[in-house]
């Protein structure tokens, strides 16, 4: 059976390569350094967010509040850098992650303890947090000159010519890879998503798992929030609005099952790469940037359809398999 279904990650990689080749043929300027740097940082942001979303989706949940958490954290830290210009970048990194973690814990508590369906809980917190940014900033924009230099230096910087965001994303991916594949709690996340009922009987702690995944999702969003505000040197109420859908698109493209239990770190990272490349390619293909939202919607539908097709089984396998194969031989 395994040989018949080609490895999903391999297929996705091939598709990405094909897209890149097509774009380069039609618009060679796609390969200029500044664009590659943009793609890498765009991928970095998306990949970090997608890692958190991956954990949530595996447990049959969904986190729509990531983009709001990102914007909130970015705004909060930008304001902080304004009032405390002495803070180093490391402090911002830690604070951003912690802040996102706390906001994520709120989602986790609503889902696991109160028992609100994840879509509703995070739709609610998405709106509430977005509103809180307005309250926090009074609707004002915090722009480059109002932020401290330490705040902007790291996210806007590069290491051997590659944006720091990219390196941070690699570290985050490594952390999630170890967590999900080599820690018991990571395997518990998969077990829980695969069969919550059996997981309960096997002693997998539901509440702790759900708190953890939403906290991780929030932490990833918080970390991104600082990097985003610092790299683009701007913080405003509508920052990253609508990105939650790009994140989910990246996940479903990466083969993460919305019905839980399945999805790999590698697949998620590739899904993020797909979205990052498609988005950056649109202008080079002279496609209106206004179509970006529609493209993401179509990608979600397409990926969900593809997943549904591969997941759907014609029925239970009751007829003996060997008899069918002999039938084919004749």
């Amino acid at each position: 059976m395994k040989a018949m279904t080609p490895n999903r990650e391999a297929v996705l990689s091939l598709i990405i390569v094909a897209i890149v080749v097509i774009v380069i043929v039609r618009a060679p300027e796609f390969l200029i350094a500044s664009n590659i740097s943009n793609i890498l940082s765009g991928w970095g942001f998306l990949a970090i967010l997608v890692m958190g979303q991956l954990c949530v989706l595996v447990t049959r949940g969904i986190d729509l509040s990531q983009a709001s958490v990102l914007a909130f954290t970015g705004m909060f830290l930008a304001l902080l850098s304004q009032s405390m210009p002495g803070l180093p970048a490391a402090a911002f990194l830690v604070l951003a992650t912690l802040m996102g973690l706390c906001l994520g814990l709120v989602n986790g508590a609503l889902v696991s303890i109160v028992g609100i369906p994840p879509i509703i809980a995070t739709l609610g917190t998405m709106t509430i947090i977005r509103g809180l940014i307005f309250v926090l900033s009074d609707g004002a924009w915090i722009s480059s000159h109002e932020m401290s230099d330490a705040f902007k230096a790291f996210p806007a910087g590069a290491f051997i010519g590659v944006p720091q965001v990219f390196w941070v994303a690699l570290v985050v991916i490594a952390v999630f890879w170890v967590l999900l594949n080599y820690r018991r709690i990571g395997r518990d996340i998969y077990a829980f998503g695969s069969n919550p009922h059996a997981a309960r009987n096997a002693g997998v702690p539901r509440i702790r798992i759900e708190l953890l995944v939403y906290a991780l999702s929030g932490a990833a969003a918080g970390l991104c929030g600082y990097l985003w505000a610092g790299r683009f040197a701007i913080a405003y109420t509508q920052a990253a609005e609508g990105r939650e859908f790009a994140i989910i698109a990246a996940c479903v493209i990466g083969g993460i099952s919305i019905t839980g239990g399945r999805g790999s770190v590698l697949g998620a990272a590739l899904g993020a790469l797909f979205i990052a490349i498609v988005e950056s390619a649109l202008p080079y293909l002279r496609i209106s940037p206004f179509l970006q939202t529609a493209v993401i919607g179509a990608v979600i539908l397409f990926a969900v359809a593809a997943n549904a097709r591969s997941e759907r089984r014609p029925g239970r396998q009751i007829l003996p398999r060997h008899k069918q194969t002999t039938g084919e031989v004749k």
């Binding site: 609508g242 179509l291 939202t293 919607g297 179509a298 969900v304 759907r312």
Partner: peptide, 29 residues
């Protein structure tokens, strides 16, 4: 689409949320 895919409507309508809005935005700019 919900019927054809047998997927929960949340997922499908998240997709069409982006799709419909995207079409509208690309027209009105």
């Amino acid at each position: 689409i919900v019927n054809a895919l047998g997927v929960h409507s949340i997922v499908v309508t998240i997709g069409t949320l982006s799709l419909y809005r995207g079409i509208a935005v690309s027209i009105v700019r």
